[in-house]
Amino acid sequence: MPWDRNQMAERAAQELEDGFYVNLGIGIPTLVANYIGENIDVTLQSENGMLGMGPFPYEDEIDPDLINAGKQTITELRRTSYFSSADSFAMIRGGHIDLAILGAMEVSEKGDLANWMIPGKLVKGMGGAMDLVAGVKRVVVVMDHTSKNGDPKLLHECSLPLTGKEVVDMVITNLGVFGIDRGKSMSLIELAPDVAVDEIKAKTQADFDVAL
């Protein structure tokens, strides 16, 4: 059975290590926070200017001065610090954030990422995505294996405008997990339960080694 959204998030949480500073994107990546292991200590960064992001507030704790990068109300923790957008992106671009977990529209076999615009449709902007993939030490993508139409999203070359070139290290889909040696090659390293390699091959355009 393919993984559902929560199971994909749970798998992505296995990439977290003790002491990591981590930036989680919007969508499934946000769910990763629910699966941080009890024995590891992880600090979440929100690129609008906060380290140590806490959970959503109770109704009587809502503070309009305290939001995350998705503009949702959140809370602070005892470890929390606040800073300007320039300091926030200094952390990101300076390579101080250990891991970013992001959604994607397309990923190429060399690690190119497209997740910010579809030509002809309304463009909302890249926000901090280009900075994150250019600066964070390790980039993990979590996405469905195919589009809603069933088209492959793991491609030889991205067809959509890029967010970053040769920037992705790992892709977790509902069917399995791929490692990427940036600029070189992609390998299938894990299967979701009862998913066969042949099914993945049929639904993937990108070339990949099987290294289960």
Partner: peptide, 29 residues
């Protein structure tokens, strides 16, 4: 890109006319 925008403001205010960044390399930016 958000970090580029932030740094462009910071740089402008600091009298720095330009800076180099990895953000956006290989993209339409």
């Amino acid at each position: 890109p958000q970090g580029t925008l932030a740094e462009r403001c910071r740089a402008g205010g600091a009298g720095i006319p330009g800076f180099y960044t990895r953000t956006g390399v290989g993209t339409m930016i």
